[in-house]
Design a protein around this nucleic acid. Structure first.
Lengths: 199, 199
DNA sequence: AAAATGAATTGTCATATGGCAAGAAATACA
DNA sequence: TGTATTTCTTGCCATATGACAATTCATTTT
């Protein structure tokens, strides 16, 4: 790590059973990294060797459907970890792509460094389990939402919880993330705007 | 553990970095348990304190939607771990219910015992990360499938990958798991049967 | 600034799935 | 064994979303 007292890393790794000096060791294992808009951090077929702590910008993950269409599977906002868990931890060629939507600034850490921290700092492996639990919860939540909520509700929820995505991501990415076409999202957005005015 | 050489537990916990004697310690931390059909292993609002390794039977997890409807979020088959990760590891009241679909036999382990194994056996915490990675992958896959595949395709995939669910679970549970109504699934099933005959 | 490229909107029509209710079948109960 | 209850099927119609194409709007490039 080049800077000291980095707030992105400290926020991400803050955890009850991680001591101050351990936190510093963890932060020092990261290296600053910048990406330009539309740059790929990971491409389908590659085996991921690192992950990133995002400080500025917006990133998306997407998979290719059987019919060859892009489907955005997730967004990454500042202070989140940009990672393809399955490829990094199971050492498998990924089926996902990770691509920046805007210029980005973040902190990179290699799998090797991560493994060392995971084995040498007990609090860190607890943190890891906890982080993974959060990710799993969010993923299940998104999946449930796809079943229980209408497309309009899903859009409004995303707007409320992650306005930065609505503001920065192209409509087509948001649409496929919500499980609808860009045409439908355009209409939903129009209708939502109309309702806002009335209210 | 009461029996020796239990194949369900050994299958579940087999992992390269877990030694034979460690595997035995892990298995011994489990206790045999039986459930009757329709019994609840966890109810919405409770904090989960244990998980189960299923040997025989079929189990489902379900959440209650905003409109008060049951939505089946997952099924558990033999040799799988029956768990509500978020509640068990984050110590939060669960939003899910876990209920048997048939009479079941399995092996129970408490969070305390799990924590001890997690901290004392390095290979076990790696196993844990790996297991969680698999669960996350499966969950993401299901979520993606809900977007990219039609209801019919989702049904056929489930039938191929988990025929035991199709055979044992009531239609309405399968339907909500696939994100459709029982009415629609009944029609889809009829059409699928017709196609089988033709082929 | 002009041209070119890509993104978003809108119209028309098609279709998959849902809502509701009635009837049939299966299962549980007593 | 007969009755009650739940589960499954089917018909009818409503509706949300998709497919495709044309147009407008925005952004990038030269």
């Amino acid at each position: 790590m080049t800077d000291s007292g980095n707030s992105t890393l400290e926020r991400i790794y803050r955890y009850p059973t991680i001591k101050a000096e351990e936190l510093e060791v963890i932060c020092k294992a990261h290296e600053k990294i910048c990406f330009k808009k539309n740059e790929y951090l990971l491409k389908e077929g590659q085996i991921s060797n690192e992950y990133y702590c995002l400080e500025e910008g917006l990133i998306r993950a997407f998979a290719t459907s059987t019919e060859g269409k892009d489907v955005t599977t997730g967004f990454f906002s500042p202070n989140e970890i940009v990672i393809e868990v399955a490829s990094l931890f199971l050492r498998l060629p990924t089926k996902e792509n990770i691509q920046t939507i805007t210029d980005c600034v973040g902190w990179k850490i290699s799998l090797d460094s991560f493994q060392q921290l995971f084995q040498s700092i007990p609090g860190f492996s607890e943190w890891g389990r906890n982080w993974m639990t959060d990710v799993l919860f969010t993923t299940k939540q998104h999946s449930l939402t796809m079943i229980t909520d209408s497309a309009t509700e899903r859009y409004l929820t995303l707007q409320k919880d992650h306005p930065e995505i609505i503001l920065q991501a192209p409509l087509k990415y948001i649409a496929s993330y919500l499980g609808i076409t860009d045409t439908s999202l355009s209409r939903i957005r129009k209708e939502a705007a109309r309702l806002q005015v009335i209210k």
